[in-house]
Design a protein around this nucleic acid. Structure first.
Lengths: 340, 340
DNA sequence: ATGAAAGCGCTAACAT
DNA sequence: ATGTTAGCGCTTTCAT
């Protein structure tokens, strides 16, 4: 059995409070001589503090929880989640926090989920791209647990760290328009997610604003995955006539879309321009390299983590932030065929 | 303030033990009528069990800890770690465990580290490619904490899940030899890590066995990273004469090596064959696609997690496992120039 | 300067 | 069938 402060106290014939103060360097002072004896005995007995017992009193665990946007197999294979997690881990390491990854984020069981998130194992929570109207989030807000939402819908009650989808989408659409495209398609993400909705809506808005054309048949779901992108593109290509440019809600969709187009004998970008969003590592080494919108996921996640810890430690009440994007033009977009 | 079982008991004028048994469905039976009233009151008071208090007694947290091979920035960007983490998360989700990612695995502070790992927040630990002779591991063994080591050195005291580096390296070297190569170089990983050591040693052994040639100048460190691979290759290319084939200890090194070779005006594979290890996603979409050795990292991690939980729950004492590899021949290797 | 004791929220042995 | 109570290991208030 592991030894406790009681064991140290007994061995030294002093009280547990003195041991506690000696071990923690305060808040009550302990004479150096006593402190040294406590430390020596602790080492001798291989004493290790039990943080569970400690946090029962202090209500602090030095652990932050990360809540992925959905449960399911292979979620950690998503480049977006990987980058976000990387940012969280980077910041957490510096702040001396560990990261608890909640594996069971099942939308359909609000009660069970909130019980897990609120069971005392973490000091604060980071929600990663939560679905719209997530009831758990209401409960978290209710309980005043420190938390930050990345890429979620606006809620006055929660601090949001999100990317500026408006300027990002505007940049892509304008880029395609300037190349000469007038007929646009879109393969969107999971429409429960804020980024998917915004990118879809801004796509429609900017195409309309510029006087371009889009049709219902050219707008298809892509689920933020490669498979989804492939299927979405298959459906678009079933139209009697097809658009000359496709904006995909993320790079994985774009990769799938390119694969589908190729399979149907279309050349990207000669026959069809395809653009993505996120700038995941793969997008630059793919053939063709994908035109995309960079968003600083790591940085968003790092700063969110720092802000969360600031909330936890009561240093400050941070405010929501919107992060800038940057258009990266590569080889998957070019002038439309009819122009040449 | 959140409500506790005490609040429920008081409100219902019954004892806390009855409330506890009602909430937990046992081990003592509670009449349905009472149970229902407890459940109703729990809901009404927005009661949520405090798992920290519970685990202080039960010594169970339903959390497994994952210990990365080193601390540092951007560790979650490593494809190997990502795949392993994905496997752990997949299995953990199914088993209803969450995953605590330890961010502060600092080799130089054994004491601090082991305190963190042993502070009661997790039921068991998974070590991911720990460095050789890691003193923390000794302490973990000492404390009889359930744990499994992935890709670590053999230790009779710990259960190991590792990949069969011998057959993997043999397959690449034989592949290169059959293509006609006789002069081999190697860019190795961090030599504190078992996989790096084994791949290096087996490389030397099999080249020798087959009657091929390698020289000290052709064996360079690559640190398991793209940058390392690039630098390693730069050094190899400084030799007056160079090998015709390079085996890299992982795919990231290979990617860096290819980049370096290209920069010096060499064509891969025409001028130089380069092979990797791991089969990370990038390796198949790279240009040229990389010849590599597939190892089932996700599966290793999933099975390790399942085995760990079995240990935790006392169901069984699993044994160490070695996993098979598979050579995947792609476009970065071909017959040497002089042959043509 | 330091000991005694209360108690964090919960489980479970011990009573009745 | 159910209440009382002793902790789990720790922090911290209250005494002295």
């Amino acid at each position: 059995m592991a030894s406790t402060i009681k064991d140290i106290a007994r061995k030294l014939n002093i009280s547990v409070s003195t041991v506690s103060y000696a071990l923690n360097n305060g808040p009550r002072s302990v004479p150096d001589e006593v402190k040294q004896r406590v430390l020596d005995t602790a080492k001798e007995l291989q004493y290790r503090p039990n943080r569970v017992a400690r946090s029962l009193i202090t209500r602090r665990t030095y652990t932050i929880g990360i809540v992925p946007s959905e449960a399911g197999t292979d979620i950690v294979l998503s480049p977006y989640l990987q980058n976000a997690l990387n940012g969280v881990v980077n910041a957490a390491e510096e702040l001396h926090y560990d990261v608890l990854f909640f594996t069971r984020y099942d939308q359909s069981r609000t009660r069970e989920m909130s019980d897990v998130l609120l069971d005392g194992r973490v000091d604060g929570l980071i929600f990663l791209a939560p679905p719209q109207h997530a009831p758990v989030l209401d409960i978290i807000v209710d309980h005043k647990v420190p938390h930050i939402v990345i890429a979620g819908e606006q809620r006055p009650t929660s601090i949001q760290y999100s990317v500026d989808n408006e300027s990002g989408v505007r940049a892509v659409v304008e880029h395609l328009f300037e190349l000469g495209h007038r007929r646009f398609g879109h393969i969107h993400g999971r429409m429960q997610m804020e980024d998917a909705i915004e990118r879809h809506d801004y796509f429609c808005k900017f195409v309309k604003d510029l006087g371009g054309e889009y049709r219902d048949a050219w707008i298809q779901p892509g689920n933020f995955t490669m498979e989804g992108g492939e299927e979405g593109m298959n459906r678009i290509l079933q139209s009697p006539d097809i658009p000359s440019a496709i904006f995909c809600a993320n790079d994985e969709i774009a990769i799938g879309a390119i694969r589908s187009a190729r399979r149907k004998g279309l050349d990207v970008p000669a026959d069809l321009s395809i653009a993505g969003f996120d700038n995941v590592p793969l997008s630059s080494v793919m053939f063709p390299a994908i035109t995309t919108v960079r968003q600083p996921v790591d940085r968003i996640a790092s700063l969110a983590t720092q802000a969360l810890v600031a909330m936890i430690e009561g240093d400050s009440q941070p405010s929501s932030k919107v992060f800038e994007t940057e258009l990266i033009v590569r080889d998957s977009t070019s002038r439309p065929k009819e122009d040449r």
